[in-house]
Design a protein around this nucleic acid. Structure first.
Length: 450
RNA sequence: GUGCCUAUGGUGUAAUGGCAGCACUAGAGCUUGUGGAGCUCUCAGUACGGGUUCGAACCCCGUUAGGCACCCCA
Protein backbone atom coordinates (compact mmCIF):
# COMPACT_ATOMS: atom_id res chain seq x y z
CA UNK A 1 0.00 0.00 0.00
CA UNK A 2 2.65 2.57 0.91
CA UNK A 3 4.49 1.66 -2.23
CA UNK A 4 1.41 2.41 -4.22
CA UNK A 5 1.00 5.78 -2.51
CA UNK A 6 4.55 6.69 -3.28
CA UNK A 7 4.16 5.71 -6.86
CA UNK A 8 1.19 7.96 -7.11
CA UNK A 9 3.17 10.85 -5.67
CA UNK A 10 6.10 10.25 -7.95
CA UNK A 11 4.01 10.36 -11.04
CA UNK A 12 2.26 13.43 -9.81
CA UNK A 13 5.53 15.23 -9.35
CA UNK A 14 6.64 14.18 -12.77
CA UNK A 15 3.45 15.44 -14.31
CA UNK A 16 3.83 18.70 -12.48
CA UNK A 17 7.37 19.13 -13.66
CA UNK A 18 6.43 18.28 -17.17
CA UNK A 19 3.64 20.82 -17.06
CA UNK A 20 5.86 23.46 -15.55
CA UNK A 21 8.75 23.05 -17.87
CA UNK A 22 7.50 25.08 -20.81
CA UNK A 23 6.92 28.13 -18.63
CA UNK A 24 9.85 27.71 -16.28
CA UNK A 25 12.76 28.61 -18.50
CA UNK A 26 13.04 31.92 -16.72
CA UNK A 27 15.71 31.91 -14.10
CA UNK A 28 16.44 34.12 -11.18
CA UNK A 29 17.00 37.46 -12.80
CA UNK A 30 20.49 38.77 -12.16
CA UNK A 31 20.48 41.56 -9.65
CA UNK A 32 23.10 44.06 -8.67
CA UNK A 33 25.02 42.90 -5.60
CA UNK A 34 23.55 43.62 -2.20
CA UNK A 35 24.00 47.20 -1.14
CA UNK A 36 25.30 48.26 -4.54
CA UNK A 37 22.98 50.14 -6.82
CA UNK A 38 22.72 51.23 -10.40
CA UNK A 39 22.53 54.94 -10.95
CA UNK A 40 20.05 55.37 -13.77
CA UNK A 41 19.96 58.38 -16.08
CA UNK A 42 17.33 60.06 -13.90
CA UNK A 43 19.46 59.67 -10.79
CA UNK A 44 22.52 60.80 -12.68
CA UNK A 45 20.92 64.16 -13.44
CA UNK A 46 20.50 64.85 -9.74
CA UNK A 47 24.07 63.83 -8.99
CA UNK A 48 25.51 65.93 -11.78
CA UNK A 49 23.64 68.87 -10.36
CA UNK A 50 25.11 68.22 -6.94
CA UNK A 51 28.61 67.82 -8.36
CA UNK A 52 28.21 71.11 -10.18
CA UNK A 53 27.75 72.89 -6.85
CA UNK A 54 30.66 70.93 -5.41
CA UNK A 55 32.98 71.96 -8.19
CA UNK A 56 31.94 75.60 -8.09
CA UNK A 57 32.53 75.98 -4.36
CA UNK A 58 35.63 73.83 -4.04
CA UNK A 59 37.37 75.32 -7.01
CA UNK A 60 36.65 78.84 -5.83
CA UNK A 61 38.51 77.98 -2.63
CA UNK A 62 41.45 76.68 -4.60
CA UNK A 63 40.86 72.95 -4.35
CA UNK A 64 42.03 70.80 -7.23
CA UNK A 65 40.39 67.53 -8.09
CA UNK A 66 42.32 64.32 -7.56
CA UNK A 67 41.44 60.73 -8.29
CA UNK A 68 43.08 57.66 -6.80
CA UNK A 69 42.59 53.95 -7.53
CA UNK A 70 39.67 52.06 -6.07
CA UNK A 71 42.06 49.28 -5.05
CA UNK A 72 44.84 49.94 -2.57
CA UNK A 73 47.30 47.84 -0.65
CA UNK A 74 45.59 46.56 2.47
CA UNK A 75 48.31 48.02 4.67
CA UNK A 76 47.31 51.55 3.75
CA UNK A 77 44.11 51.24 5.73
CA UNK A 78 45.20 48.92 8.51
CA UNK A 79 47.95 51.40 9.36
CA UNK A 80 45.90 54.57 9.16
CA UNK A 81 42.22 53.91 9.76
CA UNK A 82 43.17 51.43 12.44
CA UNK A 83 43.45 47.69 12.74
CA UNK A 84 40.80 47.46 15.42
CA UNK A 85 38.15 49.55 13.73
CA UNK A 86 35.15 47.77 12.27
CA UNK A 87 35.89 49.31 8.91
CA UNK A 88 39.21 47.53 8.65
CA UNK A 89 38.45 44.52 10.77
CA UNK A 90 35.33 43.31 9.05
CA UNK A 91 34.15 45.61 6.31
CA UNK A 92 36.84 45.64 3.67
CA UNK A 93 36.51 43.82 0.38
CA UNK A 94 39.80 42.08 -0.20
CA UNK A 95 41.22 40.78 -3.45
CA UNK A 96 44.22 38.57 -3.87
CA UNK A 97 46.70 40.09 -6.26
CA UNK A 98 48.56 37.82 -8.65
CA UNK A 99 51.76 38.31 -6.73
CA UNK A 100 50.14 37.26 -3.47
CA UNK A 101 49.74 40.78 -2.12
CA UNK A 102 46.39 41.68 -0.62
CA UNK A 103 44.53 44.47 -2.34
CA UNK A 104 41.42 45.97 -0.84
CA UNK A 105 38.65 48.15 -2.21
CA UNK A 106 39.00 51.50 -0.49
CA UNK A 107 36.61 51.93 2.45
CA UNK A 108 37.30 55.66 2.48
CA UNK A 109 39.61 58.01 0.65
CA UNK A 110 41.61 60.20 2.98
CA UNK A 111 44.34 57.63 3.42
CA UNK A 112 44.59 57.23 -0.36
CA UNK A 113 44.91 60.96 -0.89
CA UNK A 114 47.70 61.26 1.67
CA UNK A 115 49.42 58.25 0.14
CA UNK A 116 49.25 59.88 -3.25
CA UNK A 117 50.48 63.20 -1.83
CA UNK A 118 53.54 61.49 -0.40
CA UNK A 119 54.14 59.18 -3.33
CA UNK A 120 54.19 61.95 -5.92
CA UNK A 121 56.06 64.51 -3.90
CA UNK A 122 53.19 66.96 -3.69
CA UNK A 123 54.87 68.13 -0.48
CA UNK A 124 57.50 69.74 -2.68
CA UNK A 125 54.91 71.93 -4.38
CA UNK A 126 53.24 74.96 -2.84
CA UNK A 127 51.91 74.18 0.63
CA UNK A 128 49.39 73.36 1.68
CA UNK A 129 47.86 71.34 -1.12
CA UNK A 130 44.14 71.76 -1.53
CA UNK A 131 42.68 68.56 -2.92
CA UNK A 132 39.13 67.36 -3.50
CA UNK A 133 37.67 64.18 -4.82
CA UNK A 134 34.44 62.55 -5.89
CA UNK A 135 34.28 58.78 -6.03
CA UNK A 136 32.90 55.50 -4.71
CA UNK A 137 34.04 53.75 -1.55
CA UNK A 138 33.19 50.26 -0.38
CA UNK A 139 32.29 48.75 2.95
CA UNK A 140 30.89 45.29 3.50
CA UNK A 141 28.12 45.96 6.00
CA UNK A 142 24.40 45.37 6.07
CA UNK A 143 22.65 48.00 4.00
CA UNK A 144 20.14 50.45 5.41
CA UNK A 145 18.90 53.85 4.37
CA UNK A 146 21.99 56.01 4.07
CA UNK A 147 24.33 53.04 4.35
CA UNK A 148 25.39 51.13 1.31
CA UNK A 149 28.16 48.78 0.37
CA UNK A 150 29.12 51.01 -2.50
CA UNK A 151 28.61 54.67 -1.70
CA UNK A 152 29.89 57.90 -3.11
CA UNK A 153 31.91 60.40 -1.21
CA UNK A 154 32.76 63.99 -1.94
CA UNK A 155 35.80 64.92 0.07
CA UNK A 156 38.25 67.74 0.55
CA UNK A 157 41.67 67.71 2.16
CA UNK A 158 44.17 70.42 3.02
CA UNK A 159 47.55 68.76 3.39
CA UNK A 160 50.91 70.22 4.32
CA UNK A 161 51.87 73.62 5.63
CA UNK A 162 51.68 74.63 9.23
CA UNK A 163 48.44 73.02 10.30
CA UNK A 164 46.93 76.39 10.99
CA UNK A 165 43.47 76.34 12.62
CA UNK A 166 42.15 78.40 9.74
CA UNK A 167 42.35 75.31 7.56
CA UNK A 168 40.12 73.36 9.92
CA UNK A 169 37.64 76.20 9.79
CA UNK A 170 37.87 76.40 6.03
CA UNK A 171 37.08 72.73 5.58
CA UNK A 172 34.05 73.07 7.81
CA UNK A 173 33.00 76.22 6.04
CA UNK A 174 33.08 74.83 2.51
CA UNK A 175 30.97 71.83 3.44
CA UNK A 176 28.59 73.99 5.42
CA UNK A 177 28.22 76.34 2.47
CA UNK A 178 27.82 73.45 0.09
CA UNK A 179 24.92 72.03 2.09
CA UNK A 180 23.47 75.50 2.40
CA UNK A 181 23.64 76.00 -1.34
CA UNK A 182 21.96 72.64 -1.90
CA UNK A 183 19.19 73.97 0.37
CA UNK A 184 19.60 71.39 3.09
CA UNK A 185 17.60 72.66 6.06
CA UNK A 186 18.67 72.92 9.70
CA UNK A 187 22.33 72.31 9.17
CA UNK A 188 24.13 71.61 12.43
CA UNK A 189 27.87 71.39 12.91
CA UNK A 190 28.99 69.34 15.89
CA UNK A 191 32.61 69.89 16.83
CA UNK A 192 35.12 68.67 19.38
CA UNK A 193 38.83 68.29 19.89
CA UNK A 194 40.40 64.98 20.82
CA UNK A 195 43.87 66.47 21.21
CA UNK A 196 47.16 64.88 20.37
CA UNK A 197 48.26 61.29 20.89
CA UNK A 198 49.60 62.04 24.37
CA UNK A 199 46.45 63.93 25.38
CA UNK A 200 44.36 61.00 24.36
CA UNK A 201 46.55 58.51 26.18
CA UNK A 202 46.19 60.47 29.39
CA UNK A 203 42.51 60.99 28.87
CA UNK A 204 41.88 57.31 28.23
CA UNK A 205 43.48 56.53 31.56
CA UNK A 206 41.23 58.98 33.37
CA UNK A 207 38.19 57.69 31.53
CA UNK A 208 38.96 54.09 32.41
CA UNK A 209 39.47 55.02 36.03
CA UNK A 210 36.05 56.62 36.00
CA UNK A 211 34.47 53.57 34.40
CA UNK A 212 36.22 51.10 36.67
CA UNK A 213 33.97 52.02 39.54
CA UNK A 214 30.83 51.77 37.44
CA UNK A 215 31.27 48.56 35.46
CA UNK A 216 27.92 47.32 36.70
CA UNK A 217 26.07 50.40 35.45
CA UNK A 218 27.07 50.16 31.81
CA UNK A 219 25.92 48.06 28.87
CA UNK A 220 27.65 44.95 27.61
CA UNK A 221 29.02 46.77 24.60
CA UNK A 222 30.70 49.33 26.78
CA UNK A 223 32.29 46.64 28.90
CA UNK A 224 33.81 45.38 25.68
CA UNK A 225 34.73 48.91 24.60
CA UNK A 226 36.69 49.41 27.81
CA UNK A 227 39.21 47.08 26.28
CA UNK A 228 38.88 47.74 22.58
CA UNK A 229 38.09 51.41 22.20
CA UNK A 230 37.33 53.34 25.41
CA UNK A 231 36.65 56.63 23.62
CA UNK A 232 33.65 55.10 21.91
CA UNK A 233 31.98 54.60 25.28
CA UNK A 234 31.31 58.31 25.20
CA UNK A 235 28.84 58.18 22.34
CA UNK A 236 27.11 54.97 23.43
CA UNK A 237 23.41 55.29 22.73
CA UNK A 238 22.32 52.84 25.38
CA UNK A 239 20.26 54.58 28.05
CA UNK A 240 21.86 52.45 30.73
CA UNK A 241 25.19 54.13 30.12
CA UNK A 242 23.88 57.66 30.11
CA UNK A 243 24.51 58.36 33.77
CA UNK A 244 28.07 57.13 33.71
CA UNK A 245 28.80 59.10 30.56
CA UNK A 246 27.48 62.30 32.03
CA UNK A 247 29.78 62.07 35.00
CA UNK A 248 32.75 61.04 32.91
CA UNK A 249 35.69 63.42 32.57
CA UNK A 250 35.53 65.64 29.51
CA UNK A 251 38.28 65.43 26.97
CA UNK A 252 38.37 69.17 26.37
CA UNK A 253 39.43 69.66 29.97
CA UNK A 254 42.32 67.31 29.45
CA UNK A 255 43.99 68.80 26.41
CA UNK A 256 47.53 70.05 26.27
CA UNK A 257 47.99 73.79 25.82
CA UNK A 258 48.85 73.64 22.10
CA UNK A 259 45.77 71.54 21.39
CA UNK A 260 43.59 73.92 23.37
CA UNK A 261 45.00 76.93 21.57
CA UNK A 262 44.45 75.28 18.22
CA UNK A 263 40.86 74.45 19.07
CA UNK A 264 40.15 77.97 20.29
CA UNK A 265 41.57 79.22 17.03
CA UNK A 266 39.27 77.03 14.98
CA UNK A 267 36.23 78.21 16.92
CA UNK A 268 37.25 81.81 16.55
CA UNK A 269 37.41 81.49 12.77
CA UNK A 270 34.03 79.79 12.72
CA UNK A 271 32.52 82.54 14.87
CA UNK A 272 33.90 85.21 12.62
CA UNK A 273 32.60 83.44 9.51
CA UNK A 274 29.17 83.03 11.10
CA UNK A 275 29.22 79.27 10.91
CA UNK A 276 27.01 78.05 13.74
CA UNK A 277 28.31 75.04 15.65
CA UNK A 278 27.56 73.04 18.73
CA UNK A 279 30.34 71.88 21.02
CA UNK A 280 29.96 68.15 21.36
CA UNK A 281 32.37 67.15 24.14
CA UNK A 282 31.50 63.49 23.62
CA UNK A 283 32.08 63.45 19.88
CA UNK A 284 34.92 61.10 19.02
CA UNK A 285 35.57 59.68 15.62
CA UNK A 286 35.98 56.03 14.84
CA UNK A 287 39.07 56.31 12.70
CA UNK A 288 42.48 56.13 14.35
CA UNK A 289 44.17 58.81 12.31
CA UNK A 290 42.30 61.78 13.72
CA UNK A 291 43.80 64.21 16.19
CA UNK A 292 42.78 67.63 17.51
CA UNK A 293 39.68 68.79 15.62
CA UNK A 294 36.90 66.36 14.82
CA UNK A 295 33.49 67.36 13.51
CA UNK A 296 30.29 66.13 11.95
CA UNK A 297 27.57 67.94 10.07
CA UNK A 298 23.95 66.87 10.46
CA UNK A 299 20.59 68.03 9.36
CA UNK A 300 18.06 68.63 12.10
CA UNK A 301 19.02 68.76 15.72
CA UNK A 302 21.89 66.35 15.31
CA UNK A 303 20.50 63.81 17.73
CA UNK A 304 22.67 60.84 18.49
CA UNK A 305 20.76 58.49 16.26
CA UNK A 306 21.17 60.58 13.14
CA UNK A 307 23.54 59.85 10.35
CA UNK A 308 26.20 62.44 9.65
CA UNK A 309 26.06 63.99 6.20
CA UNK A 310 29.65 65.14 6.49
CA UNK A 311 32.37 64.03 8.87
CA UNK A 312 36.00 64.86 9.19
CA UNK A 313 38.85 66.17 11.22
CA UNK A 314 42.53 66.81 11.49
CA UNK A 315 45.09 64.06 10.93
CA UNK A 316 48.56 65.43 11.57
CA UNK A 317 50.09 62.01 12.21
CA UNK A 318 48.74 60.20 9.18
CA UNK A 319 51.72 60.87 6.92
CA UNK A 320 54.09 59.84 9.67
CA UNK A 321 52.18 56.58 10.04
CA UNK A 322 52.81 55.96 6.37
CA UNK A 323 56.51 56.29 7.00
CA UNK A 324 57.23 59.88 6.05
CA UNK A 325 57.92 62.88 8.22
CA UNK A 326 54.88 64.32 9.92
CA UNK A 327 52.70 66.43 7.70
CA UNK A 328 49.75 68.49 8.86
CA UNK A 329 46.42 67.62 7.32
CA UNK A 330 42.73 68.27 7.75
CA UNK A 331 39.78 67.14 5.69
CA UNK A 332 36.27 65.81 5.53
CA UNK A 333 34.02 63.63 3.42
CA UNK A 334 30.37 63.94 2.56
CA UNK A 335 28.10 60.97 1.86
CA UNK A 336 26.49 61.66 -1.49
CA UNK A 337 23.59 59.24 -1.02
CA UNK A 338 22.88 60.57 2.44
CA UNK A 339 22.64 64.11 1.16
CA UNK A 340 20.49 63.05 -1.78
CA UNK A 341 18.11 61.25 0.57
CA UNK A 342 17.77 64.35 2.70
CA UNK A 343 17.22 66.50 -0.38
CA UNK A 344 14.54 64.20 -1.68
CA UNK A 345 12.67 64.78 1.55
CA UNK A 346 13.40 68.44 2.17
CA UNK A 347 13.74 69.85 -1.29
CA UNK A 348 12.00 67.64 -3.86
CA UNK A 349 12.39 70.36 -6.47
CA UNK A 350 16.13 69.67 -6.47
CA UNK A 351 15.57 66.60 -8.58
CA UNK A 352 13.53 68.33 -11.23
CA UNK A 353 15.90 69.54 -13.84
CA UNK A 354 14.65 72.39 -15.93
CA UNK A 355 14.78 71.49 -19.59
CA UNK A 356 16.99 73.66 -21.66
CA UNK A 357 15.78 75.25 -24.83
CA UNK A 358 16.02 72.52 -27.36
CA UNK A 359 15.30 71.72 -30.95
CA UNK A 360 13.69 68.58 -32.26
CA UNK A 361 14.88 67.43 -35.63
CA UNK A 362 12.16 65.59 -37.57
CA UNK A 363 12.65 63.87 -40.89
CA UNK A 364 10.15 62.64 -43.46
CA UNK A 365 10.86 59.88 -45.91
CA UNK A 366 13.85 57.78 -46.83
CA UNK A 367 15.73 60.38 -48.85
CA UNK A 368 15.62 62.95 -46.07
CA UNK A 369 16.64 60.28 -43.60
CA UNK A 370 19.74 59.58 -45.68
CA UNK A 371 20.70 63.22 -45.70
CA UNK A 372 19.95 63.63 -42.01
CA UNK A 373 23.12 62.23 -40.47
CA UNK A 374 25.46 64.75 -42.11
CA UNK A 375 23.00 67.54 -41.49
CA UNK A 376 22.75 66.69 -37.79
CA UNK A 377 26.52 66.69 -37.58
CA UNK A 378 26.59 70.16 -39.08
CA UNK A 379 24.12 71.33 -36.44
CA UNK A 380 26.14 69.75 -33.67
CA UNK A 381 29.25 71.58 -34.82
CA UNK A 382 27.25 74.79 -34.64
CA UNK A 383 26.51 73.94 -30.99
CA UNK A 384 22.77 73.66 -31.38
CA UNK A 385 20.95 71.55 -28.78
CA UNK A 386 19.28 68.99 -31.03
CA UNK A 387 17.15 66.00 -30.19
CA UNK A 388 16.26 63.53 -32.89
CA UNK A 389 15.12 60.00 -33.44
CA UNK A 390 15.82 58.91 -36.97
CA UNK A 391 14.29 55.51 -36.34
CA UNK A 392 10.81 56.94 -36.12
CA UNK A 393 8.65 56.95 -39.18
CA UNK A 394 5.68 59.25 -39.11
CA UNK A 395 6.00 62.98 -38.76
CA UNK A 396 3.17 63.22 -36.25
CA UNK A 397 4.96 60.68 -34.15
CA UNK A 398 8.09 62.77 -34.20
CA UNK A 399 6.28 65.97 -33.37
CA UNK A 400 4.65 64.20 -30.49
CA UNK A 401 8.11 63.33 -29.17
CA UNK A 402 9.09 66.94 -29.73
CA UNK A 403 6.38 68.21 -27.44
CA UNK A 404 7.11 65.53 -24.87
CA UNK A 405 10.72 66.65 -24.67
CA UNK A 406 9.59 70.28 -24.36
CA UNK A 407 11.39 71.32 -27.50
CA UNK A 408 10.91 74.97 -28.32
CA UNK A 409 11.54 74.52 -32.01
CA UNK A 410 11.15 71.68 -34.47
CA UNK A 411 13.05 71.34 -37.70
CA UNK A 412 11.18 69.49 -40.41
CA UNK A 413 13.23 67.96 -43.17
CA UNK A 414 11.50 66.01 -45.94
CA UNK A 415 11.91 65.07 -49.57
CA UNK A 416 10.70 68.43 -50.80
CA UNK A 417 13.22 70.23 -48.59
CA UNK A 418 16.04 68.01 -49.78
CA UNK A 419 15.33 69.00 -53.38
CA UNK A 420 14.90 72.66 -52.56
CA UNK A 421 17.90 72.73 -50.21
CA UNK A 422 15.94 74.19 -47.34
CA UNK A 423 14.25 73.20 -44.08
CA UNK A 424 11.17 74.15 -42.09
CA UNK A 425 11.53 75.74 -38.68
CA UNK A 426 8.42 75.27 -36.58
CA UNK A 427 7.77 77.15 -33.39
CA UNK A 428 6.34 74.50 -31.09
CA UNK A 429 4.39 76.97 -29.00
CA UNK A 430 2.67 79.03 -31.66
CA UNK A 431 2.75 76.52 -34.47
CA UNK A 432 4.01 79.11 -36.90
CA UNK A 433 6.42 77.85 -39.51
CA UNK A 434 9.09 79.33 -41.69
CA UNK A 435 11.14 77.83 -44.48
CA UNK A 436 14.83 78.68 -44.41
CA UNK A 437 17.62 77.70 -46.78
CA UNK A 438 20.04 75.14 -45.34
CA UNK A 439 22.87 77.65 -45.50
CA UNK A 440 21.15 80.07 -43.20
CA UNK A 441 19.69 77.52 -40.84
CA UNK A 442 22.16 77.94 -38.00
CA UNK A 443 21.73 81.68 -37.88
CA UNK A 444 17.98 81.49 -38.20
CA UNK A 445 17.65 78.92 -35.42
CA UNK A 446 19.94 80.81 -33.07
CA UNK A 447 17.91 83.93 -33.63
CA UNK A 448 14.68 82.08 -32.82
CA UNK A 449 16.12 80.56 -29.67
CA UNK A 450 16.82 83.97 -28.26
C1' G B 1 27.58 39.20 11.35
C1' U B 2 22.43 38.98 14.48
C1' G B 3 17.04 39.97 14.91
C1' C B 4 12.13 41.67 12.86
C1' C B 5 9.20 43.08 8.37
C1' U B 6 8.66 42.84 2.98
C1' A B 7 8.84 41.02 -2.50
C1' U B 8 2.69 40.83 -8.29
C1' G B 9 4.28 44.01 -15.83
C1' G B 10 9.18 49.52 -16.40
C1' U B 11 6.17 52.30 -12.14
C1' G B 12 1.95 52.29 -8.64
C1' U B 13 -1.57 48.74 -7.15
C1' A B 14 -5.95 44.60 -6.97
C1' A B 15 -6.88 39.48 -6.36
C1' U B 16 -6.36 36.04 1.12
C1' G B 17 -6.39 28.71 -1.34
C1' G B 18 -10.17 28.49 -7.06
C1' C B 19 -9.99 32.31 -14.58
C1' A B 20 -3.66 37.14 -12.33
C1' G B 21 -7.02 42.36 -13.14
C1' C B 22 -6.71 47.88 -13.14
C1' A B 23 -4.11 52.66 -13.76
C1' C B 24 0.20 55.13 -15.49
C1' U B 25 4.43 54.66 -18.68
C1' A B 26 6.31 52.70 -23.33
C1' G B 27 5.33 51.15 -28.57
C1' A B 28 1.90 51.09 -32.96
C1' G B 29 -2.39 53.14 -35.27
C1' C B 30 -6.82 56.34 -36.31
C1' U B 31 -3.64 60.90 -39.32
C1' U B 32 1.86 56.91 -45.24
C1' G B 33 4.11 65.73 -44.56
C1' U B 34 2.43 68.53 -39.00
C1' G B 35 2.41 67.62 -31.91
C1' G B 36 -0.07 68.45 -27.02
C1' A B 37 -6.90 66.15 -26.55
C1' G B 38 -9.64 61.76 -27.66
C1' C B 39 -10.26 56.72 -29.17
C1' U B 40 -8.29 51.67 -30.71
C1' C B 41 -4.66 48.03 -30.41
C1' U B 42 0.12 45.97 -28.60
C1' C B 43 4.36 44.78 -25.37
C1' A B 44 4.92 43.41 -20.36
C1' G B 45 4.17 40.48 -14.10
C1' U B 46 3.35 36.66 -9.18
C1' A B 47 12.06 37.44 -7.41
C1' C B 48 14.36 32.26 -7.55
C1' G B 49 14.25 26.96 -5.85
C1' G B 50 11.65 23.33 -3.22
C1' G B 51 7.36 21.57 -0.14
C1' U B 52 1.93 21.12 1.44
C1' U B 53 -2.69 20.76 -1.59
C1' C B 54 -7.40 18.20 -6.28
C1' G B 55 -5.72 23.31 -6.87
C1' A B 56 -0.68 28.22 -4.41
C1' A B 57 0.58 35.17 -5.98
C1' C B 58 -1.75 33.64 -1.23
C1' C B 59 0.29 28.45 3.52
C1' C B 60 5.51 26.21 4.93
C1' C B 61 11.09 25.86 4.15
C1' G B 62 15.51 27.66 1.77
C1' U B 63 18.03 31.36 -1.44
C1' U B 64 18.44 36.28 -3.33
C1' A B 65 17.21 41.34 -2.91
C1' G B 66 14.82 45.59 -0.32
C1' G B 67 13.37 48.09 4.43
C1' C B 68 14.11 48.75 9.83
C1' A B 69 17.00 47.96 14.32
C1' C B 70 21.75 46.42 16.72
C1' C B 71 27.14 46.75 15.80
C1' C B 72 29.51 50.51 13.27
C1' C B 73 29.63 54.50 9.99
C1' A B 74 29.85 58.89 4.85
Amino acid sequence: MPAKGQMKKETKKQVKRALKKPTSHKKQILQSPKGMHDILPGGMLVREKLYKSVKAIFEFYGFNRIETPILEMEELFTKTVGENTDIVEKEMYAIKGRGGQRLVMRPEMTASIVRSYLEHGLHRQSQPQYLYYIGPAFRHENPQAGRYRQFWQVGAEIIGGEGDPVYDAQIILIFYKLLEELKVKNITVGINSIGGAVDRQNYKKKLLEHYKDHTKEICKNCVRRMKTNPLRMLDCKNKVCRGVIEEAPIILDNLSTPSKTHFKGVLEFLDEANIPYILRPRLVRGLDYYNKTVFEIFTGEGEDSQLALVAGGRYDYLAETLGKRSTAGVGAAMGVERVLEVLEEQNPAFGTVRSKKSIYFAHVGQLAKLKSLPLLEKLRQANLPIISNLGKKSLSNQLESASKTDATLALIFGQKEVYEDNIIIRDMKTGSQETVSLEKIVKAVKKKLK
